[in-house]
């Protein structure tokens, strides 16, 4: 049995326009985030993964299933798309219920599962209302309910936090985490980088249709040797510590934090630096906390693709 979502040399062209090119990925269970600016190929990658578009070249396999076999693929996969259109005249409940009936479920089972999914996304009160009257956030949540309704092993969510208020976002993030904790594959695309950073087990960074980096955030960060790691050190004697830091060749730059309660240091060899810092702590400098200042997706993304695109 295959336990990965595999892309082998996958390319997709829309006529002469590049969607994605030469993608090779092997996605394990857990939360995987696709990060990239508009037009970088996130949605194309998701549509390829779910068979909504066919690759121009290459092969895709989702666990044991090929993407041109929707009858079996969607038994284990749920996809919340970014398409903001619904079949006309349906209520929220009918939308999820109809999907389950299309899946071949009996009326009783579909009703039960639909209500359970609607409860999971906290939309019970509005479930009897027509979807056409929903707010953007509600439409987002009902799409999530549809994607999760049949308890899929793989959940693909295109910009799932778009349009949600902060409370709903934290609820949804908790939902993604609990889904992933059950051994599921949760693939998320998002522009909200810091939220992705917090919830992801691994990231796939995309730019102009190419994968520029993939793997756990920390590993991806370590691969970018040309960009020094920034470390924020909180201590009571930042100036003394700064002076000592310059004695070590790994140190590139040190600046005192504006609140005078610590310093920001740049180094090319973070691992060796942490060892050095331990020695200093032993030798009498009182260090309150040490934290990487740029070991997050935003920083990694800025380094890889450039500040201009990351901000977009």
């Amino acid at each position: 049995m295959n336990d990965r979502i595999v892309f082998e040399d996958v390319s997709k062209f829309y006529g002469e326009i590049l969607g994605v090119n030469r993608i090779n990925l092997s996605i394990p269970a857990g939360i995987t985030s696709l990060v990239g600016p508009n037009g970088s190929g996130k949605t194309t990658l998701m549509n390829l993964m779910t068979g909504l578009v066919r690759p121009t070249r290459g092969r895709i396999q989702v666990l044991d299933y090929k993407t041109d076999d929707p009858e079996n693929l969607f038994k284990i996969l749920g996809y919340s798309t970014q398409f903001d259109a619904f079949p006309k005249g349906l209520t929220g409940f009918q939308f999820v219920y109809s999907y389950l009936r299309l899946a071949g479920r009996t009326s009783e089972s579909a009703e039960q599962m639909a209500w359970r999914a609607i409860e999971r996304v906290n939309l019970v009160d509005a479930a009897r209302r027509n979807v056409a009257g929903y707010s953007k956030g509600m439409r987002q949540r009902i799409r999530l309910a549809q994607a999760l309704a049949h308890d899929p092993k793989v959940v693909v969510l295109d910009e799932p936090l778009n349009g949600l208020d902060p409370l709903a976002r934290s609820e949804m993030i908790a939902l993604f985490r609990s889904t992933a904790a059950q051994g599921c594959y949760v693939i998320i695309s998002s522009h909200i980088l810091h939220e992705v950073d917090v919830i992801s087990d691994q990231v796939i960074l995309l730019s102009n249709g190419y994968v520029v980096a993939e793997g756990p955030i920390h590993n991806v960060r370590s691969e970018i040797q040309e960009h020094p790691t920034q470390i924020l050190i909180r201590c009571s004697q930042p100036r003394e510590l700064a002076a000592k830091m310059f004695e070590y060749p790994q140190t590139i730059e040190v600046s005192i934090h504006k609140d005078e309660g610590g310093l920001l240091l740049k180094t090319r060899d973070a691992d060796r630096f942490y060892l050095t810092l331990n020695e200093m702590a032993v030798n009498g400098i009182d260090i309150e906390s040490i934290a990487p200042a740029d070991d997050d997706v935003l920083s990694v993304y800025e380094y890889l693709i450039g500040n201009e695109e990351a901000v977009r």
């Binding site: 929707p70 009858e71 798309t81 398409f83 299309l102 899946a103």
Partner: peptide, 20 residues
């Protein structure tokens, strides 16, 4: 009609043969 309404994907996301 569903392509123009952008809602055809609703059917394509169901575990169902396209011929069905």
């Amino acid at each position: 009609g569903e392509i123009l309404d952008r809602s055809l994907h609703f059917y394509f996301l169901a575990p169902m043969r396209r011929e069905v």
